[in-house]
C-alpha cells in the first residue's frame, strides 16, 4: 500500500503540528488574566478585536507588512527583470547565489549585522558623518526604518525568485509582436510583460506579506519597541504578563490572516492553471 509510506510524516504532522494547534485553540478559550467584565467563551477574542489598543496593533502589523511588500516589489521587480532579460549564464547564476546565500545564514545573524550597521556609532552613521552629510548621528536603530530595512533584506529574495521564475517563462516573441504592432518599449512592458508576470508578482507579494506578518526576530532586535506588532505582543504575553489564553487568541488571529492569504494564493494559482 502506497499509503503506508505516508504514516511517518503523518505521525510527525499530527504530533508537532495538529496537536499544538488544537492545544493553542483550546487555550484561547480559557479565562485570561485580565478578563473583561462578563467574559464568556470568546472573551479573549472580544478583547483583541474590540479594544482599540489591540486593534491598533493588528493595524500596525498589517501596515508594516504592506509597506514591506510594496518595497519588495519595487526593489525586486527590476532585479528579477534584469536577471531574466539581461544577465547571461554566469551572471545569472551569480545573482541566484547572492539571493540564496543570505537565506543560508540564520536570521539572527543578519539582523545583528544591521544592528552593527545602523547603531549610533555604527558604520552608516560614521560614513555619513565623515562625509559631513550629518552633524549628529541619526537614530536609525530601534526605528520603523530599521525594521523595514531588515525585513526587506530578509524577504526580497522570495519576491525576486518568484517574479523571475514567471518572467523567465514569458515568450520574448510576445513582446516582439507588440513592438511590431506599434507598441514602444514602455507600452509593450505595460501591456504584455507586466500583466503576464502578475502571477509571479502576486505569489511573491502574498509570500512576503505572510512572512512579514509573522516576523519576530527582526522586530525585536531592530524595532526596539518603536513598532508594536502581533508577534511582539504574543511574546510579551508569554514572557511578561504570563497571559497564555490571550496570547493563544492572538496567535490564532495571526493564523487566520495567514489562511486568508493562502486562500488568495490558491485562487491565483488556480486561475493560472486554466
Amino acid at each position: 500500500m502506497g499509503f503506508s509510506f505516508m504514516i511517518p510524516s503523518l505521525l510527525l504532522l499530527v504530533a508537532f503540528f495538529i496537536v499544538p494547534l488544537v492545544f493553542v485553540g483550546e487555550m484561547s478559550f480559557r479565562e485570561g488574566r485580565l478578563p473583561p467584565p462578563g467574559g464568556g467563551l470568546w472573551q479573549n477574542y472580544e478583547r483583541l478585536f474590540f479594544d482599540s489598543f489591540y486593534l491598533g496593533v493588528i493595524g500596525e502589523t498589517m501596515l508594516l507588512s504592506v509597506v514591506v511588500t510594496l518595497i519588495c516589489i519595487l526593489v525586486g521587480y527590476p532585479v528579477a527583470y534584469f536577471m531574466v532579460r539581461h544577465a547571461g549564464g554566469k551572471l545569472y547564476n551569480l545573482i541566484i547565489f547572492l539571493l540564496i546565500a543570505p537565506l543560508l545564514t540564520p536570521i539572527i545573524m543578519r539582523t545583528f549585522g544591521w544592528q552593527v550597521l545602523l547603531a549610533r556609532r555604527g558604520l552608516v552613521n560614521e560614513w555619513l558623518q565623515s562625509l559631513d552629510l550629518i552633524s549628529k548621528p541619526l537614530a536609525l536603530l530601534n526605528s520603523p526604518v530599521a525594521v523595514v530595512l531588515g525585513l526587506v533584506h530578509v524577504l526580497a529574495p522570495f519576491m525576486i525568485l518568484s517574479i523571475a521564475s514567471v518572467l523567465a517563462g514569458i515568450d520574448r516573441r510576445l513582446e516582439e509582436s507588440a513592438r511590431m504592432l506599434g507598441a514602444g518599449k514602455g507600452m509593450s512592458f505595460l501591456k504584455i510583460t507586466l500583466p503576464l508576470s502578475m502571477d509571479g508578482l502576486g505569489t511573491g507579494a502574498i509570500l512576503v506579506f505572510m512572512l512579514a506578518n509573522g516576523s519576530f526576530v527582526t522586530l525585536l532586535l531592530l524595532g526596539g519597541g518603536s513598532l508594536q506588532t502581533l508577534p511582539l505582543l504574543i511574546y510579551q504575553q508569554f514572557n511578561t504578563t504570563r497571559d497564555l489564553p490571550f496570547a493563544a487568541a492572538m496567535s490564532n488571529a495571526l493564523l487566520l490572516i495567514a489562511f486568508i492569504c493562502l486562500f488568495f494564493q490558491l485562487r491565483l494559482i488556480r486561475r493560472k492553471g486554466v
Binding site: D171, R173, L174, E176, S177, A178, R179, M180, L181, G182, A183, G184, S188, I192
Partner: peptide, 17 residues
Amino acid sequence: PPNKRGLGMVFQSYSLF
C-alpha cells in the same frame, strides 16, 4: 525601431497574447 516601421509579422509560435 520596429514599432515605427509599420510592418506586420507572424511568428512560428503565433505569439498571440
